[in-house]
Amino acid sequence: MSNPVVLIVMGSDSDVPTMEETAKVLTEFGVPFEMRISSAHRSPERTGKLAHEAAGRGIQLIIAAAGMAAHLAGVVAAETTLPVIGVPMGGGPLSGMDALYATVQMPGGIPVATMAIGKAGAKNAALFAVQILSLTDSSLREKFAAYRAQMAVEVEQKDQALQASRRL
């Protein structure tokens, strides 16, 4: 696989199953990536170094996933000028709402694009990454357009199946 252009960083190994959705989509589109575990709170120096050095390694954007206090995306965004996409993880006593608020409520000047909680957010983070990367990659732009067109076809097919089953 060629050099990664997307860095997926997670606060814990418990986030891996959810973030496999991100990996699956990026793989489907042929976008090279790497996955790392680093915590904003338990390994702040390591996290800062990963973010700070990412651009120099050819990374073009970072997807950061964390639960609970979920400061990972913000810490990463503070250490790089690359686009950062945050994915709040579900679970915990507040079912991921704490992670959502911690990810989305960034101070002015340090933006983090924030996706939905959990697997839907993990999938959308990858799709958003593809959209960003497609700004300078026409092949990726074509793949994304085909993906969206196929989604529309699938919806129409499901509607046709529903209509056929209702006529019985």
Rank of each mutant, 00 (worst) to 15 (best):
P32C: 05
E28D: 12
V75F: 11
G96I: 01
S43H: 09
P83L: 09
E20M: 06
A145E: 14
G109L: 10
V75N: 01
G109C: 04
T47P: 07
M106K: 10
L72M: 10
A129K: 08
V112E: 03
S139A: 15
R36P: 03
M89K: 08
V155T: 13
E45I: 01
T22S: 12
A40D: 08
K123N: 15
A113I: 09
H71F: 03
E79Q: 15
I110S: 11
P32Y: 05
G118A: 09
V155F: 10
A126K: 10
T114L: 00
Y101A: 12
I85F: 05
Q60C: 02
A64K: 05
G58W: 01
G48N: 15
I85E: 02
Q150E: 15
E79M: 14
A55H: 07
L140D: 04
G92H: 09
Q131C: 07
K49D: 04
E28N: 08
F144H: 13
S43K: 06
R46L: 07
G109E: 08
G108H: 12
R36V: 15
S138Q: 15
A23K: 06
V75P: 00
V76P: 06
D98I: 02
I62E: 10
G56T: 01
T81M: 11
A23S: 13
V31R: 01
K119M: 09
T18P: 04
V155I: 14
A78S: 14
G92M: 06
I37K: 13
T18L: 04
A145G: 04
F29V: 12
I117M: 05
F144Q: 02
G121Q: 00
T22A: 07
T27D: 10
F144E: 02
G121Y: 02
L133S: 03
P17L: 08
A73S: 12
P93S: 04
V112D: 01
L100E: 05
A146I: 06
V112P: 10
T18Q: 03
I132Q: 13
V84T: 04
G67Q: 08
M35S: 13
P93I: 12
P93Y: 13
R141D: 15
I59P: 03
M68N: 09
G86P: 01
F128D: 03
G96V: 01
L135S: 13
V153P: 00
L82W: 08
M68P: 07
A145L: 08
V87Y: 07
M89C: 07
E21A: 15
Q131L: 13
A102K: 01
G109D: 10
K119H: 09
V75W: 00
P44W: 03
Q105F: 10
A129I: 08
N124Y: 05
V31M: 00
L61M: 11
V84I: 11
A145R: 14
A102F: 03
T47W: 11
A73P: 06
Y147L: 02
F29Y: 07
Q131E: 13
L133R: 05
S138T: 15
N124M: 12
R46G: 00
R42H: 11
A152T: 13
A55Y: 00
H71S: 09
I132L: 15
T81Y: 07
I62C: 11
R148F: 00
M68T: 10
A113V: 14
V104A: 04
G86Q: 00
I62S: 12
